[in-house]
């Protein structure tokens, strides 16, 4: 496997100047450590989910890797180039999509934006026409090409933005919250597109998102960052284990009130439906079921791992307790 992104001990320190309290008060300064030594590497052809709560340092990392930001210390290479030292050469090789911002020209038809990007990236006209045709077909935006960007819906715009970021055929794609605010259909089609892009053309993807369905659908590997530090580099299962590896037992029980064994806790109760959380390390599943059958009048039972959303919520809670 060829390593194409390598970050070593990335540190970013900002000095934030607060607003003056009054005209004559001195300006207060605060030092913010956005990244405190982040190291990882990504191989060609991977889709990596980059997760973490707001302000954890996700976009700071992406900014460093895309050449926008010069870190305070540490180094990174992408295609054996240091992004912030050779910005122009570097950005020719990468694609970047910010879900909250468009890179298209607001007042112009979509096609005109694409053509401008062709000029800016100095693309070969024939190769560009070919790429554009393929992508437009793939993303099904043929009908939108004559529409000014300001008239597009968010989902339509995001599809066009994705195409725009791929016109120069980058081998790496940085996606920052690509599905934010999209309806279900758009989300699904966007995910399918990204997956195909990765499988068929081998484009490497680094995805930051809060949408755990994106992660579930696309990523086999995740990086978890909190307070500027890398907390986990592993699979989705590793992530669940880190969150405490809790299981959820959904049980239909007749009794209104019943005792629970140590290691289990009632999370919710609606009618006969009870949701019980337990830790398989201290309480085996068969023990719990046996206990419920004996004490609660068990009718039916289902045991599941918690959803990724619940996992992340638990993780963020833990981080909050540990660090804040």
């Amino acid at each position: 496997m060829q390593e194409i992104i390598r970050a070593e001990d990335l540190r970013v320190r900002f000095i934030v100047r607060k607003r003056r309290a009054s005209l004559f008060a001195p300006r207060e300064k605060a030092v913010v450590e956005a990244l405190r030594g982040v190291s990882f590497s990504v191989n060609a052809g991977e889709i990596v989910g980059y997760l973490g709560p707001n302000g954890a340092g996700k976009s700071t990392t992406v900014k460093c890797l895309s050449g926008i930001l010069t870190p305070t210390s540490g180094t990174a290479t992408v295609f054996s180039r240091v992004p912030w030292q050779e910005r122009v050469a570097h950005v020719r090789k990468i694609g970047v999509v910010f879900g909250q911002r468009t890179q298209l020209w607001w007042d112009l038809p979509v096609q005109d934006s694409f053509d401008l990007l062709c000029d800016i990236y100095d693309l070969d006209k024939r190769a560009y026409a070919q790429t554009c045709r393929e992508l437009v077909e793939c993303m099904d935006i043929g009908d939108l090409l004559r529409t000014p960007v300001r008239q597009l819906s968010l989902g339509q715009r995001m599809r066009c933005d994705l195409v725009a970021s791929l016109l120069h055929r980058p081998r790496i794609l940085f996606l920052d919250e690509p599905t934010i605010g999209l309806d279900a259909v758009s989300k699904l089609s966007l995910r399918a597109f990204i997956r195909d892009l990765n499988r068929e053309q081998g484009v490497t993807v680094l995805l930051t998102t809060h949408d755990m369905d994106d992660v579930e659908a696309l990523c086999r590997r995740v990086l978890l960052i909190g307070r500027g530090r890398l907390l986990l580099d592993g699979s989705l299962d590793d992530l669940r284990r880190l969150a405490g590896g809790k299981r959820v037992c959904r049980a239909q029980v007749r009794k209104a009130d019943f005792p629970l064994p140590p290691g289990a806790a009632l999370r919710s109760r609606r009618g006969e439906e009870a949701e019980i959380e337990f830790d398989p390390e201290t309480l085996a599943a068969d023990q719990l079921v046996l206990h419920l059958a004996r004490t609660a009048g068990l009718r039916d039972v289902q045991i599941q791992p918690p959803s990724l959303d619940e996992t992340m919520a638990a993780l963020y809670r833990q981080m909050g307790e540990v660090e804040g």
Binding site: I68, V88, A89, V91, R92, V96, Q103, D122
Partner: peptide, 17 residues
């Protein structure tokens, strides 16, 4: 509005853009 990042992501001098 934070749109300067956009310019830095394009392979041209910012002044020119």
């Amino acid at each position: 509005e934070g749109n300067f990042d956009r310019l830095l992501l394009r392979p041209r001098a910012t002044l020119f853009q």
